[in-house]
């Protein structure tokens, strides 16, 4: 047939670089928040030991893997999903959907409502991860951006806002 062409569409390198950076930062921020914030600590205590979850884009990532080891410590485990046992997969249907999430054009509940997010694993644990990410985003982002990223902006004390942010951001950069 004359008008037939076969095409293998290429990738989106710039968006991939941006998303890798964001996921790296958020992963380390989750690790930091688990030591700073009481609610995040409590959420992780309710998860079983050795529990790993991954957030990323279908089909080939980028991915963020965070886990709780046998000692109960929360660690950012990198972006490689192949050599790990993942108990909870939170997958966005495309790199574009993940990009919408991490440029805060859509919050996680809106993304879920628009069928961009699917979960393989325990649903209560997925809800816990969403709550953790909401708290982390409040620590990382200024208020006018965080309000776009989460469902409801929390009422925290000034001390928690200032000191919590300093500690989470510093620990995120250091990686401790």
């Amino acid at each position: 047939m004359e008008d037939f062409v076969e095409i293998k569409p290429k990738g989106k390198p710039l968006k991939r670089i941006y998303l890798n950076l964001m996921l790296w930062f958020v992963g380390r921020a989750i690790q930091a928040s688990a030591k700073v914030d009481k609610k995040v600590k409590q959420e992780f205590e309710d998860l079983p030991k050795g529990y790993n979850f991954a957030l990323g884009a279908f089909p080939n990532g980028p991915w963020m893997v965070v886990g709780k080891d046998d000692d109960g410590r929360v660690r950012y485990l990198g972006r490689n999903v192949k050599d790990k046992t993942i108990d909870l997969w939170m997958t966005l249907k495309s790199v574009e959907a993940l990009f919408l999430l991490f440029t805060f054009q859509e919050s996680t509940p809106v993304s879920n409502a628009r069928s961009r997010l699917f979960v393989e694993g325990d649903l209560p644990h997925a809800c816990a991860v969403v709550r953790i990410m909401d708290i982390v985003q409040v620590y990382l982002l200024p208020k006018f951006i965080a309000k776009l990223a989460i469902k409801r902006y929390p009422r925290w004390s000034l001390k928690q806002h200032i000191i919590g942010r300093i500690l989470v951001n510093a620990r995120t950069l250091i990686g401790y």
């Binding site: 047939m1 004359e2 008008d3 037939f4 062409v5 076969e6 095409i7 293998k8 569409p9 290429k10 990738g11 989106k12 991939r16 884009a57 089909p59 080939n60 495309s94 790199v95």
Partner: peptide, 17 residues
């Protein structure tokens, strides 16, 4: 449509006649 399949790893065939 082609752009929608970027990053998917899929191959498309297109007939536009």
């Amino acid at each position: 449509v082609i752009n929608a399949f970027r990053e998917s790893g899929m191959t498309l065939g297109i007939v536009d006649s």
